[in-house]
């Protein structure tokens, strides 16, 4: 609210008219007619916040503009709209906005249904990692610069400090996104072990990265060990049992080589059997049989 009032107070255009214009028409207006006005206002805004860029004229070099826009968004990140207003005006830096790629990565994970996996996006993943290294370089160079100027890095609050802060925050955010991506995928991989057992179907295997496959194998091994320790197969009995026997229909030719705990039978396709639930469950979860109810 504070920032909004200050900007409004200096001219009263930027936000007060928002209700009348859509963001895009407003942005065109800014682009065409209010360019100088906006520059002026941005400078006023920064000065009022007391964290100005030092130069008198706002020469919008690419780097500076990016810094400025990021700082602006940082200062007033509650005002999401500011970004949409500024975007056509300074399109380039915003398209490369920090953290955008990491956000895309997480969004991609979340875009499919619960418990589903997307293809492991190693391309985007590497880009985010590269962005992180870039941030780290810039962060270090800014800190070096401050040290060369003889400032105390801990306490100094100049433009470089805030620049470094932005790089740090962007890096941390990227890290969180990357970790969330990998960790959530790991969670799904674990649930896969429970659902389909220790053998990965081809179509899922293609979606995993190399380390994820390794993790899958290790985890299923661990689970097996734990279950043999308890002398109990935990992957069956997923729903409370009503009757020890259930009626099932065989969906695939699984042959007659299967020995159940109490009998043997020929499981030809489409044949119907009356089986022990614990025996049938493993076939049901693998999609080889279906339970007939009613």
């Amino acid at each position: 609210m504070l920032t909004r009032n200050r900007i409004d107070g200096t001219g009263g255009f930027l936000f007060s008219d928002l209700s009348k214009h859509t963001a895009s028409t407003l942005a065109t207006m800014i682009h065409l007619r209010w360019r100088t006005e906006l520059q002026l206002r941005l400078r006023n805004f920064l000065y009022t916040l007391g964290q100005s860029l030092h130069s008198d004229s706002l020469s919008f070099s690419r780097h500076k503009r990016r810094l400025l826009v990021n700082r602006l968004c940082f200062c007033s990140f509650r005002l999401r709209r500011l970004r949409s207003i500024l975007s056509p005006y300074s399109l380039q830096p915003l398209l490369n906005m920090y953290g955008r790629k990491a956000c895309e990565l997480v969004k991609e994970f979340a875009s499919v249904g619960k418990g589903q996996l997307t293809q492991y996006n190693s391309d985007l993943f590497e880009q985010v990692v590269a962005e992180c290294s870039q941030h780290h370089l810039e962060l270090q160079s800014l800190i070096r610069k401050m040290q060369e100027e003889g400032l105390d890095v801990q306490t100094a609050r100049n433009a470089d400090h805030y620049g470094a802060l932005i790089h740090h925050l962007a890096l941390v955010r990227n890290k969180r996104c990357l970790m969330a991506y990998v960790n959530n995928r790991a969670e799904i991989i674990r649930s896969l072990v429970w659902k389909i057992g220790s053998v990965l179907p081809k179509e899922i295997e293609e979606k995993l990265s190399h380390t994820e496959e390794e993790y899958f194998n290790k985890y299923s091994g661990e689970l097996k060990k734990y279950m043999s320790k308890m002398e109990l197969d935990l992957t069956v009995d997923m729903v409370p049992p009503k009757d020890p026997y259930i009626k099932v229909r065989v969906l695939d030719d699984i042959g007659d080589g299967i020995v159940l705990s109490d009998k043997t039978a020929n499981f030809a396709r489409h044949s119907i059997h009356f089986l022990k639930r614990t025996d049938a469950e493993q076939f049901i979860s693998r999609g080889l049989m279906e339970e007939l109810t009613g």
Binding site: C132, V182, K218, Y226
Partner: peptide, 27 residues
């Protein structure tokens, strides 16, 4: 629940291999 600590090690290793080892050292 002896598998628990193994699980931690495995997940940690997984995270380290896929993410953390690629980040700058302070992170």
């Amino acid at each position: 629940e002896f598998s628990c600590c193994r699980c931690i090690e495995d997940l940690k290793q997984h995270l380290e291999e896929s993410v953390l080892s690629k980040l700058p050292e302070n992170y």
